[in-house]
């Protein structure tokens, strides 16, 4: 076997291995973030797949480790934002008519049902937050990033992240009916 062919096979296998490693490491996190942003399984799949295609095409020039993590999150955030712009109004209208949980508070005593309703309420309220507040809260609550990391990812200061998390939770409280006494 010619040495150059052997080299190319080894390189290809190594790239495959790298890609698999990156995929296995970051898929759950990216999927979770997009799912919380959109509450749609099909969109989450599509967005994360697109992000990994972008990664595969540019993997030679992309940073590794920490930098790659930030890059991937920025990509899914942008793709989810594009989706939001494109479909947001239409999706919300459809959900309002067909999928919005109809809370029947008359059925008491069924804890699991109540819990499910609460979860649906929280998810629904989360979707109603403005995008800028939602992404920060999701990166904090579901990705577990520190404020400084979130600031770095979104290109804002740590103080700004702090303010947005505070406002996001406050708005959620209002949406969930937890008014100030």
């Amino acid at each position: 076997m010619p040495p150059f062919l052997l080299f190319s096979i080894v390189t290809e296998f190594s790239a495959y291995d790298d890609f698999s490693k990156v995929y296995e490491t970051w898929f759950p996190l990216l999927y979770r973030i997009v799912y919380r942003m959109t509450a749609r399984e099909d969109i989450s799949e599509e967005v994360v797949q697109e992000a990994f295609i972008k990664y595969y095409e540019r993997r030679d020039v992309l940073p590794k480790d920490e930098g790659l993590k930030f890059w991937l999150i920025r990509v899914v955030r942008n793709l989810a934002l594009n989706y939001e712009k494109r479909k947001g109004r239409e999706r919300r209208a459809v959900e309002r008519h067909y999928h919005e949980p109809k809370l029947d508070l008359g059925h008491e005593g069924e804890r699991s049902v109540e819990r499910k309703e609460t979860i649906q309420e929280v998810q629904h309220a989360l979707l109603q937050l403005p995008y800028n507040l939602r992404i920060v809260l999701i990166l904090k609550e579901y990705a577990g990033f520190a404020y400084a990391e979130i600031g770095k990812m979104l290109g804002i200061t740590e103080g700004n992240v702090k303010v947005r998390v505070f406002r996001a939770r406050n708005q959620l409280a209002q949406l969930l009916g937890e008014e100030r006494s």
């Binding site: 919380r36 609460t118 579901y142 969930l176 937890e178």
Partner: peptide
């Protein structure tokens, strides 16, 4: 208490089953 309550409610949302 309000901030903590919202934090706890958000924590109730488990990973999607479809993951």
């Amino acid at each position: 208490e309000r901030q903590k309550s919202i934090h706890e409610k958000l924590a109730q949302l488990a990973d999607p089953e479809s993951l």
